[in-house]
Simulated assay, not measured.
Amino acid sequence: MDTVDVEGVFRAEYGRAVAALVRFLGDIDLAEEAVQDAFATAVRRWPETGMPPSPAGWIITTARNRAIDRLRRESTREARHAEAALLHAPDAPPEEGPVRDDRLRLIFTCCHPALAPQARVALTLRLLGGLSTAQIARAFLVPGATMAQRLVRAKAKIRDAGIPYRVPRDADLPGRLGGVLAVVYLIFNQGYEGSPDLCREAVRLGRLLAELMPDEPEVTGLLALMLLSESRRPARQDEDGVLVPLPQQDRSRWDHGLIAEGQALVRRCLRRGRPGPYQIQAAVQAVHSDAPTAEATDWGQIRRLYDQLMALAPSPVVALNRAVAVAETEGPRAALELVDALGLDRYHVLHAVRADLLRRLGRTPQAVRAYEAAIALAENPAERRYLERRLRELTR
């Protein structure tokens, strides 16, 4: 077995291992260090011994033993209590409370209101998804150094304020929900760029949330949004690993089971009459999935949904998506005026959209420069290959 196999286990099991240790330790740094030590040990041993029958169990057990060893070297009363908790963990009764999944529990715990909203999301992405600081920074469209500082401050806040790691009470759950939903959706988006495992984890967490909070329409909306987006994964790349934009996708390859489930959830949201950002985004995806062909897409309805989303939760990215709908309803010139006013210079999608609008307007030299800017910023290989292909088509 080689290191790549260990990396696969890391992606799949890091969050579960950290969550399991945090539950008993109540110390995020110790839990992370122990899990990282366990994976470092796996990198050394597994190529010689082979993968154990239960890789996740091996990692958690090894991390637990590493934590115990460290605690035994310390003389504080808190360390002895933590060691006792770990030693008796296998026989411990289930923790009472509304959240019984370790990973979901850790998300709610990290979304404590004492932390800034972006810090809650970033910290949970680090813990649950095992994402690097650079990956999280890309998700937030900020420099890596900025995100590293946010993570350090979040951990210091937890330590200095004595924020407890415990299952929130029922009354606390609604107040934590916004941060939790943002975490799950960012995990999904990170996976959508190239890691199906992260998408599956986000959907799994979304289903758990929907079971936990069935009367929260935004939970239902987020699950619908993820299912409808995930339904198109089989058609998103061609055989050469190049991105296939939605209008050019082979719709027979879409997962129609996920589409049916997602559309049913959207209809449930509509019946509640309490629209929110995730529900509206899910409705946009439902309109796309309703269309048998790209030409049959109801862009007028999509434009109205983005108008509603801009009223509820305005942001430059929402405005960019709205501009795409404007291009289909009013033409590329009207859309280009909107795009040029957004100021998302670090966001490769803006340059890609702008390049397409300029191409449609026949402004080839400007379109070439926009494609070059998009390529320079694009991190995803499939997207970069697609942009490079479009650039070659313009410069032949």
Rank of each mutant, 00 (worst) to 15 (best):
E7N: 08
R11L: 13
A12E: 13
E13S: 14
V18K: 02
L30E: 01
A31Q: 08
E33F: 00
V35F: 00
A38N: 01
V43G: 01
W46P: 03
P47S: 12
M51L: 15
P53A: 02
I59A: 05
R72K: 14
S75R: 11
T76F: 02
E78F: 05
A85E: 10
R100A: 14
R100C: 13
L104C: 05
T109H: 03
L115M: 07
V121G: 00
L127M: 05
S132M: 08
F140S: 02
L141I: 09
V142G: 01
V167H: 00
R176W: 06
V180Q: 00
R200A: 15
R204T: 14
G206S: 05
G221M: 08
L227F: 03
R233A: 10
R233K: 15
D238L: 03
L243F: 09
V244D: 11
R253H: 08
G262A: 07
L270N: 04
R271H: 11
R272H: 02
H288V: 07
S289G: 06
T293F: 09
E295K: 09
W299L: 09
L305F: 14
L312F: 04
V318Y: 13
A334E: 15
E337R: 14
V339S: 06
R354C: 12
A355S: 12
R363T: 13
A373H: 09
R384T: 08
R390G: 00
R392C: 04
L394S: 08
R396M: 01
